[in-house]
């Protein structure tokens, strides 16, 4: 069945403005996430005492940069509005935190932020973009599937490091994990939404005119998928279930947008 036929069947018009704006919005955010990852891995490379790790970090940074380029090219090919630099405040806050941690030589916090938190969210994003619990065009799906493989590998190498770190200093690990979770996860969850702070303006589209429903998905489900995979990744690292639960409890308090609850 052709792409267009599939789309019609599911009542999603891949050539419609709403779908195109949505994909542009998602690609812009994904590109921003990739650029954030480039910065984070570069930061981690500069402070790593182990030369083998320096090489791994730089390779990962290079892969993230190539993801950003793949996504930019995809946006061009699909002819969707796109922004190719970081604009959302949440991404900037994440970069700021990881840069600070790197400045303090705190490689553990960098691993937690980038390799556990950002990578799990990247995996979920690319799963959705490849058609898991969503309906997307073939081009988007195939690029997303390609990037997904790299992200799973990034997560895997980070998990190996973190699994060892938890054994080396359990108490220290938990203190750092709580701190990093409180800083990074609210920002990441704030990014899973249909509207935007400044991104829509820069994209030249009207905020609120499209939503993830335009790709047959829903925001609540996306958040739950993100949380499930985050928990699964912590399980794999060996984080205590009780501790994971205390982190999950405070996720319920994350607001989409600090101003949205009022007026």
């Amino acid at each position: 069945m052709s792409n267009a036929a599939v789309a019609v069947k599911n009542n999603i018009d891949f050539d419609g403005t709403n779908y195109k704006n949505l994909i542009g919005f998602i690609l812009s955010n994904a590109i921003a996430g990739e650029l954030v990852a480039v910065k984070n891995y570069t930061n981690m490379a500069t402070i790593s005492p182990d030369i083998n790790n320096v090489i791994v970090f730089l390779q990962e940074a290079l892969e993230e940069a190539s993801h950003a380029r793949l996504l930019q090219n995809l946006a061009k090919e699909l002819d969707v509005p796109v922004v190719t630099h970081i604009v959302e405040p949440s991404w900037l806050n994440i970069v700021k935190y990881v840069t600070e941690c790197a400045g303090n030589g705190n490689i553990l916090a960098c691993y937690m932020a980038q390799d556990l938190m950002l990578e799990t969210q990247a995996v979920v994003l690319y799963r959705i973009m490849s058609g898991e619990n969503s309906i997307v065009d073939e081009k988007t799906s195939s690029i997303a599937k390609r990037i997904l493989q790299d992200e799973l590998q990034h997560l895997d190498s980070g998990s190996t490091y973190l699994a060892k770190a938890i054994k080396d200093d359990e108490a220290g690990f938990y203190i750092e994990l709580k701190k990093t979770h409180d800083k990074i996860m609210p920002e990441l969850f704030r990014l899973i939404r249909n509207d935007c702070d400044t991104l829509c303006d820069e994209m030249g589209v009207t905020c609120g005119t499209f939503s993830v429903n335009d790709m047959g998905s829903d925001i609540d489900l996306m958040k739950i998928m993100a949380l499930e995979f985050y928990v699964e990744s912590m399980d794999n690292i060996g984080v205590k279930p009780e501790f994971i639960n205390s982190l999950v409890t405070n996720v319920s308090g994350f607001s989409e947008n600090p101003t949205s609850a009022c007026c």
Binding site: I224, V231, D235, P241, I244, N245, V248
Partner: peptide
């Protein structure tokens, strides 16, 4: 995992 997430979120 799902029950833990459920319990945690509505705690």
């Amino acid at each position: 995992k799902k029950q833990r997430i459920f319990g945690g979120l509505i705690k």
